[in-house]
Every structure is written in structure tokens, then in C-alpha cells.
């Protein structure tokens, strides 16, 4: 990595860290139980929302009721998105006359957006009407992110309350997440993106003449759409000159802002953030990349503020950075090193004034290698899933890093809210392991960690791992799963492993290379996404309820300090060891074997 690469990485981390405290403190105010200047300022709108929705602000919930409200609310949203896709041909704001989406793709997309995964088996501009994009996916981008924040705040209350039966109100937390956090930030970012050239309109797609007409060879088809064959059984082809191009438009900026801030990641266009109308300039790229980690990072500070010790929040953030920054640098190094086979062919892969150097396959020349690898690692560390480069085209080791970041459980920043509660599950496991080492009952933030919390935390940590490996195993054994693979051998296995890791950790990014818009993949990935989201949230809410009911234990000489560098290393180690132990065999069959075969084939 040269000085320019380090400068870009450093600038990103510095700006991100500079925003953590102000935004984190702001969110702590938004979720405070006590009236404050923020809730007074927005109180009128908040009360109006409660009145029209029939919400009683002071009516708190136990963890069971909170969980049920969360589940029912999200399943209703899921059904609404399913219905919108199936009926979009009859609904307004469909200037391209998009037909109904197929049932299996509607199922997959509805679950995907309700679970904050935003895996996309379809191409947005060729499948969905403006109404479906806005009312279906755009709304779910807000609500799924707000759900994650609500669950994490309820968990924090579990730590702060003593001998309490309730952990807050799901409806109040949802309202405040949306009203005070997601809406204002999204509005500001959407306007900034429009200033950079991101489209935001309702006009039909525009056909424009190409600057340079291009000629293609296409198969001749009969009236029924079947390929015409000659007397020898060969397909008949003809030359066709393309002179125009259809430019897709639509209300993109408003959706892209929340897609990044809410760690949703579902692209308005099929090429996602590699599309010039989603991400036109290096500045829009920086803003969007910042938005990906902004709320998950700031929530760490919010957590510290709410538990009355900001050092606890900084500790979680430090553990996240301890894993992210080296992996970001390693991914950049792997891509800048390029393809070893090219060296033997005497192809110059070094960076110079005339070329980016390294492996530029699948990357935008507007962004180059560093912005592509930083995005790839940020989007997979967070459960965002948007891409500005094609991960399938990364070098095997460069592609391994985003995949492994997903497999670590989406706790290195993770999803909005879900990253914090996932990391707190690991913190519970870490203090338990530390307690075992010294033979004391583990404590975290003044609460004893007992068998029930450990059972729930273990489930939260292990469910996504199980879904990913079992799903991959089914797909590589089933003919329908194998039919979707575009590449044979280790690389094809990587494509399937990535898809199931992404769905089972609610990330949503695609490695690419597999044809996932089939009933097999749509159904199986949909099931993985659902179970990776709601049972985990319920497990964390159960921990919240259990902790809230406990008494505060005074700190003693035997209490493990959880705000020290030692705990940062312990926490990061637990995350890495669990991720490595679970996925190393699968990674050996995929990207590691792929890398070794690339190196050996070059000699």
C-alpha cells in the first residue's frame, strides 16, 4: 500500500470517528426515558404519530410482548411488500409497465427487505415499478433499520434497569428511531447525493443515441421466441447495430440515502453503487461509504452514554476497529498485488500515472482499487451489502476478506442496531470465558451473566453459522443449486458459500456469479434470511428481559474490567476464533483452494 492508499483509509477512519460522539450523544438523547430538549423539540410530531397510531407512550412492555410486537409488525410489512410486487402492474407510478414479479422472487425480496438483508435476486430497473421501489422497498429500508435500533436500545435498557419487568415500548422506540434518527439523516444525505448527480424523478426511462454505435451478434428467434436453427442444427445468428441506449431513471436518491444509513444495501439499480446514477463521483462514494458505518459506530457511543460509562462504548468500537482496519488494508494489498499469473506473462500490473495497477477486473475506474476494497470491507463489516465493485472478480484472497467479515456474524459494526446487539452477545460470551478462566461468576456492567443469558447468547452467535453452512451444503448437493453456479470448482463453491453467508447474516451483498433468481435459491435464501433475523432479535430481547429483572451487583476486586485494552483484545479474539473455527473448513474448500490453484497454475 502506498501513501495515497493509507491516506484514504486514514481519512475515512478519522472522519468516521469524529462523527461518533456527536451522533451517539444525539441518539442517547432521542432514546432517553427522561424528557429533554430533543424530545421537546420533536414532541409535537411524536405525539401526533402516537395519536393516529393509537400508541400509549407510557405503556411499557415486557420482553415477550416487545418481541411479539416486533415480529407481528415486521411480518405485516413483509406481506405488504409481497402484495405490492404481485400487483404492481395494476398500480400507479409504473411508467415502464413492469409486469408482476414472480411469486418466488416476491417472497425472497419481501423477506430480504423486512429483515434488513436486502439481498437482490432481481435487477431493480428491469423488474420493479417506482411505487414498489418507494412504498415497498424504501419504506422497509426505514422500518427494518428502525427495528434493529429499537431492539438494541431495549437491550441497553436491560443493562441499565434493575429489578424491572419491562424493557420499553417497541412502538415508541420505532417512532423515535425513524423520526429523530433515520429521517433527518436520510434527508440530508439524499440532498447531498442529488447535488452529486444521483437521479430523483418520476419520468419514464429515456432512450438516448449512443456516442459510438456498436454491433452485436444475436440469435434469430421465431414468433414463439425459440431459437431458429439451420439444416445442421446450428443456431442462426444475425448482426445487429445498436444506436440507442435506455437510461433508467426514478426516485433513486431518496432510497440510496436510507439504503446506506440503514445498512440496508439494496440497490435501486442492478449494478448497485457501481451505477453512475447511484454513486456518480468520488465524493458521493466517500459520503455513502461513511453512511454505511456511521450509525453502527455511533450506537456504540450511545450504548456507553446510556449505561453511564462511555468507556464501555469506546471499548466495543475499539474491538470493531481492531478487526476492520487490518482486514481493510489486507484486502487492498491483495487487490493491488494483482494476479500472479499475469506476472509470468510479463504483463505490467504496477500502479503508474497511466493505470491503476493491480487487479482492476470488476472495479469502476472512477473509484480504483482503494475505494473499491474499502467499500467491500465496510459493506460486509456492516450488514449493508451494497457494492461498488464486483466481489466475484476480486482475487481469491481479496474476496475471502469480505466473505469472512460477513461470517464473523455481522458484529464488526454490523447492521444498524443489530451490530450492537450482536457484539453485546459476543461480549457476554467473552466475560463468560474470562469468568471460567478465573473461576468467578461472570459479570457485565453490574449484571451477573448466568446460564440463561449464556444459552441465549450462544444461540444468537451460532444460529447464523448453522444456517450458512447447512444452506451451502444443501445447495452444493442439490441439482437445482448446482445449476445456478456459473463457475466450476473452488470458485463456484465460493459463490454459493458467499450467498448463504450473506443471507444467513443479513448482509445482502452478492459475490456474483450464481444465477440466484430461481425458485430454489429464492426460497432457500429467503428462509435463511428470516431465521437469521427474528429468532436472533428475540434471543437478545430475552437477554434484555432477564438482565432488567436482575439486581445491580456492586463492582468488586474480582470484577473483570470491561473498558480496558485487555478486554478489547479478548472480545476481538472471541469474535475471530468463533468465526475462524466455524468457517475455516468451508473457506479452505472455496477461496483458499482458489488462491492456491491460482498461484500453482502460474508456474
Amino acid at each position: 500500500m502506498n501513501a495515497n492508499s493509507w491516506a484514504q483509509l486514514g481519512l475515512y477512519v478519522v472522519v468516521l470517528l469524529a462523527l461518533v460522539k456527536p451522533l451517539g450523544a444525539y441518539m442517547a438523547l432521542a432514546f432517553s426515558d427522561q424528557p429533554n430538549r430533543l424530545t421537546k423539540f420533536g414532541g409535537g410530531i411524536e405525539r401526533f404519530v402516537y395519536r393516529i397510531c393509537g400508541i400509549h407512550r407510557d405503556e411499557e412492555m415486557g420482553w415477550q410482548r416487545y418481541s411479539l410486537a416486533m415480529l407481528v409488525f415486521n411480518v405485516v410489512g413483509l406481506l405488504a411488500v409481497y402484495a405490492l410486487q404481485r400487483t404492481q402492474q395494476w398500480l400507479p407510478l409504473n411508467p415502464q409497465h413492469m409486469p408482476a414479479v414472480t411469486p418466488d422472487s416476491s417472497f425472497n425480496t419481501a423477506i430480504s427487505f423486512a429483515t434488513n438483508t436486502n439481498w437482490q435476486g432481481y435487477g431493480g430497473e428491469s423488474t420493479l415499478s417506482y411505487l414498489t421501489q418507494m412504498l415497498g422497498l424504501g419504506v422497509q429500508n426505514f422500518l427494518s433499520a428502525a427495528t434493529g435500533i429499537a431492539v438494541s436500545i431495549a437491550l441497553v435498557r436491560g443493562f441499565t434497569r434493575h429489578t424491572a419487568k419491562t424493557i420499553g415500548s417497541f412502538w415508541v422506540d420505532m417512532t423515535r428511531s425513524t423520526l429523530y434518527v433515520l429521517l433527518p439523516l436520510s434527508l440530508g444525505l439524499a440532498l447531498a447525493l442529488v447535488s452529486q448527480g444521483v437521479v430523483q424523478d418520476f419520468s419514464p426511462y429515456k432512450d438516448v443515441p449512443l456516442l459510438q454505435p456498436t454491433t452485436i451478434t444475436e440469435a434469430v428467434k421465431d414468433a414463439a421466441g425459440n431459437a431458429v436453427k439451420d439444416a445442421h442444427g446450428k443456431e442462426v445468428t444475425r448482426q445487429k447495430t445498436i444506436t440507442t441506449q435506455s437510461l433508467p431513471l426514478g426516485p433513486a436518491a431518496s432510497q440510496i440515502a436510507i439504503k446506506q444509513l440503514g445498512t440496508n444495501g439494496g440497490g435501486y439499480f442492478n449494478a448497485n453503487s457501481a451505477h453512475p446514477y447511484e454513486n456518480p463521483t468520488p465524493f458521493s462514494n466517500f459520503l455513502e461509504m461513511l453512511a454505511i458505518l456511521l450509525i453502527p459506530a455511533a450506537l456504540c457511543y450511545t450504548f456507553g452514554r446510556m449505561v453511564g460509562d462511555t468507556r464501555q462504548g469506546w471499548t466495543l468500537l475499539a474491538a470493531m476497529l481492531l478487526i476492520l482496519v487490518p482486514l481493510m488494508a489486507a484486502c487492498t494489498l491483495a487487490e493491488q498485488a494483482g494476479n500472479p499469473n499475469f506476472t509470468h506473462l510479463r504483463i505490467d500490473q504496477s500502479a503508474s500515472a497511466l493505470q491503476a495497477g493491480g487487479n482492476m477486473e470488476g472495479k469502476e475506474t472512477r473509484f480504483g482499487i482503494v475505494d473499491s476494497t474499502m467499500w467491500a470491507t465496510a459493506t460486509t463489516a456492516a450488514s449493508n451489502g451494497s457494492v461498488n465493485a464486483m466481489h466475484d472478480s476480486f482475487t481469491p484472497l481479496g474476496g475471502l476478506i469480505p466473505m469472512w467479515l460477513i461470517q464473523l456474524g455481522e458484529v464488526i459494526f454490523g447492521g444498524v442496531g443489530s451490530g450492537l446487539y450482536g457484539m453485546l452477545a459476543f461480549a457476554v460470551v467473552a466475560v463468560f470465558i474470562a469468568g471460567l478462566m478465573v473461576g468467578r461468576t461472570p459479570e457485565y456492567l453490574g449484571k451477573k451473566i448466568e446460564a440463561y443469558e449464556m444459552k441465549m447468547a450462544s444461540l444468537v452467535v451460532l444460529i447464523p453459522c448453522a444456517l450458512a453452512v447447512v444452506g451451502t451444503a444443501i445447495a452444493v448437493m442439490a441439482p437445482a443449486g448446482l445449476a445456478g453456479m456459473a463457475n466450476p470448482g473452488a470458485h463456484g463453491f465460493s459463490e454459493v458459500l458467499y450467498a448463504f453467508s450473506s443471507a444467513s447474516n443479513n448482509n445482502g451483498s452478492a459475490f456474483g456469479g450464481i444465477s440466484a433468481n430461481t425458485s430454489f435459491y429464492n426460497s432457500l435464501l429467503g428462509i435463511c434470511m428470516f431465521f437469521a433475523r427474528f429468532p436472533l432479535a428475540i434471543g437478545m430481547l430475552a437477554i434484555a428481559g432477564s438482565l432488567a429483572a436482575k439486581k445491580q451487583v456492586p463492582e468488586s476486586a474480582g470484577t473483570l474490567p470491561t473498558h480496558t485494552p485487555l478486554f478489547v483484545v479478548l472480545l476481538a479474539t472471541v469474535v475471530i476464533v468463533i468465526g475462524a473455527l466455524t468457517f475455516l473448513p468451508a473457506l479452505a474448500l472455496g477461496p483458499i483452494a482458489d488462491s492456491l490453484s491460482t498461484v500453482s497454475s502460474g508456474h
Binding site: 415477550q64 418481541s67 409481497y82 428470516f530 428475540i538 430475552a542 432477564s546
Partner: peptide, 30 residues
């Protein structure tokens, strides 16, 4: 096919409610 996928959504939701019930049972037992 709509019926199949709607039934699958219902089954997933019910399974999750079952998981919630199990978590509650374990909590009551401690």
C-alpha cells in the same frame, strides 16, 4: 404459487413464535 409462498411465510412466522415460546419456557424454569 402465491398460496405456497404465503403458507411458507406463515410457517416461518409460526416457527419464530414457537422459538419465542421456548425462550419464555426456559426463562420461567431458571
Amino acid at each position: 404459487m402465491d398460496v405456497v409462498y404465503l403458507a411458507l411465510i406463515a410457517a416461518l412466522a409460526l416457527a419464530t413464535v414457537g422459538f419465542l415460546w421456548l425462550c419464555e419456557r426456559v426463562a420461567d424454569r431458571k
